[in-house]
Amino acid sequence: MVFKRMLQALGVGGPSVDAVLTSPDCRPGGTLEGAVQILGGDHPVDVEYLAIGLLTRVEVESGDSEYHTDQEFHRQRLTGSFRLEPGARHDVPFTFPVPWQTPITEVYGQHLHGMTMGLSTELEVARAVDKSDLDPVAVHPLPAQERILDALLRLGFRFGRADVERGRVYGVEQELPFYQEIEFYPPPPFARGINQLELTFLPTPRRLQVVLELDKRGGLFTEGHDAFGSFDVDYATVDQVDWVAKLDGWLRQAAQRRGLLF
């Protein structure tokens, strides 16, 4: 009997959980819908709660070093406590709001290199190992984000990689403890002055905040440094702006002001 209780505490013969998404695709500010399927094991258990959350991979700087960690950044409890009998099945439907500043993971049907995003499911079981599940989620850009990305590609910039960094961006409205950077390689007219362009989107329900960072190419006697700029995009008028011309002009002016001539 003692051995059996030990096995139960380790989760042997315990319940299982599986989140089934109606679709893994979503956008910032949208929703994910589906149901969590709970199946009882070979003995009754007391469930404390069932919860789901969004999880991504975050880069953390610590002194002179850095490391990566999985961080859950939005969570929703689906149930309170209940008794789960052996072999019993419960389907718990959910509608899960996706935060506006959730990092994007897909662009034009292609996965952004370096990005990880998943929906985690946790069944908290009293006096036993918790049961969990992780399902991949694809976060597609908002139409306004697509306009900016398309303009940069038309200017000749090429996708590099993307990552999520813990910290805050100065001077913008930020709701999460991290931000995404999408790296681009510059086209020849810009490549003489800069190594790369880093793009950060921080959407809100009212506007899209765009932050651009130019990484200056250092020379034999000069040290490279970063140059920042930001602007807002109005969702209602985004289609009325020539973003290719606007970004080209802004990038050239910003580069020239900082001595990055090309």
Rank of each mutant, 00 (worst) to 15 (best):
T31Q: 15
Q174N: 13
E223F: 02
E122Q: 15
R147W: 03
R158N: 13
L54M: 08
V20W: 02
R252T: 05
H113M: 10
P205Y: 00
E48I: 09
V36Y: 05
A138H: 12
H74F: 13
P187V: 06
V172S: 13
F94S: 11
F159C: 07
L214Y: 06
L155Q: 11
Q240V: 03
R158D: 13
L251C: 03
D234H: 12
F157Y: 11
E66N: 14
P99G: 04
Q209G: 10
L176H: 05
Q71E: 14
R257S: 10
G167R: 09
G249N: 12
P93T: 02
R5N: 15
L10T: 07
P24H: 01
V17C: 10
R127Y: 14
R158W: 09
R158S: 15
G87D: 08
G40A: 02
L220E: 11
F82Q: 00
E85K: 10
I104V: 03
D135P: 02
S62M: 14
A126K: 13
D18V: 06
P28Y: 03
L142R: 04
Y108C: 05
G156W: 05
F159Q: 13
V211L: 09
S23A: 10
M115V: 07
L214Q: 05
L247A: 03
G63W: 05
H90W: 11
P177Y: 13
S65K: 08
G249Q: 10
R127M: 10
D239W: 00
M6G: 12
A51H: 08
D133A: 12
V164Q: 01
D239M: 01
R5G: 08
T56Q: 01
Q76P: 06
Q196V: 11
L261G: 06
L10R: 07
V107Y: 09
F221I: 12
C26W: 00
P205S: 02
R206N: 13
R168W: 05
D25A: 14
P143A: 00
P93I: 01
D242Y: 00
G249C: 07
V244H: 05
R89S: 15
E66G: 14
L78M: 07
V17Q: 08
F184K: 05
V12K: 00
E183N: 04
L220N: 05
S132D: 15
D91P: 08
D130G: 10
D215I: 01
L123M: 01
L261T: 15
D64Q: 15
W243Y: 04
S16M: 10
L39S: 13
Y49A: 12
S120T: 14
D242Q: 00
E106I: 14
G109V: 07
G11Y: 08
D130Y: 09
L32E: 00
E122A: 15
A51L: 12
A51P: 05
E173V: 14
G218E: 04
S23N: 09
Q196C: 11
S65N: 07
A126D: 07
V211W: 07
E173M: 14
L54T: 07
P186Q: 02
A19N: 04
G114K: 03
G171N: 12
V241S: 01
T200H: 03
A255M: 15
M6K: 09
R217W: 02
E106F: 09
E183R: 09
V210F: 06
P28F: 05
I182M: 07
